[in-house]
Design a protein around this nucleic acid. Structure first.
Lengths: 123, 123
DNA sequence: CGGTATCCTCATTGATACTG
DNA sequence: CAGTATCAATGAGGATACCG
């Protein structure tokens, strides 16, 4: 009804709500990995991508890719019909995420030790 | 044993692994909200914080705060014993997250519409 | 090669209620 | 005011197998 209030109450409307939106995008466990891989490797096929991302299962990769595609971060192009060959690449929007990813990386490097100080695993 | 390989395989060791670490920190649904609120409001009490964050339950807020505290992002200070009054504030580390949060916000503002183009809710 | 379909498990969230 | 306890619901993630 009141379309003046389409934002969550805790989103004062100063645009900061996008933090959550962006965070939920970049924070999805495998998304940053995928984006980073695509950022540094360029277009990759499904399996190649799976290799790059290591432990991810095809199901999860597929889902992630779907999500990323829906959000216009990556594009899916069929480069060969037979045998089927597809290429996933970042869209302009996806590439525009570089600074964000860089920002995360930079902070992590400066403030989080590579060795991880989660401390909880040391007991 | 081999401390040369303490990083996940998909973490080439070029420091980008921190992306994931940072993302998992900032990407935790309520964390960015809490951090932002603290960033703009300064120290806040538990309930005040809950008000600010809107729909969060005390349980989840409590857990988030625990997590954030453990990660040295926020500090918890008892400012009054009776009645009990506590203040949550960002640590230096927490404040150092500002650029990261800004980066997320900025990207979201520029590339994500405030109106959300998730498109799936429109059917 | 590029995916889907199942099934299962665990982490996270949320609502409600209750305590010091 | 500042939390914790409980319990139910959801959903992301993972292993495996199978299909075009």
């Amino acid at each position: 009804m009141e379309d003046t209030e389409r934002l969550p109450a805790w989103c004062p409307g100063e645009g900061w709500c996008s933090i959550t939106a962006t965070a939920s995008l970049v924070g999805k466990k495998w998304h940053p990995v995928i984006i980073h891989r695509l950022l540094s490797e360029g277009a990759l096929g499904f399996n190649a991508l799976q290799e790059e991302v290591d432990g991810i299962s095809s199901k999860v990769l597929s889902e992630s890719l779907d999500d990323l595609e829906e959000k216009r971060i990556v594009s899916r192009t069929i480069v060969s019909e037979k045998p089927v060959r597809v290429e996933y690449a970042l869209t302009d929007l996806g590439e525009s995420l570089e600074p964000v990813v860089m920002s995360l990386a930079e902070w992590g490097e400066q403030h989080l030790d590579p060795v991880e100080e989660k401390a909880s695993s040391v007991v």
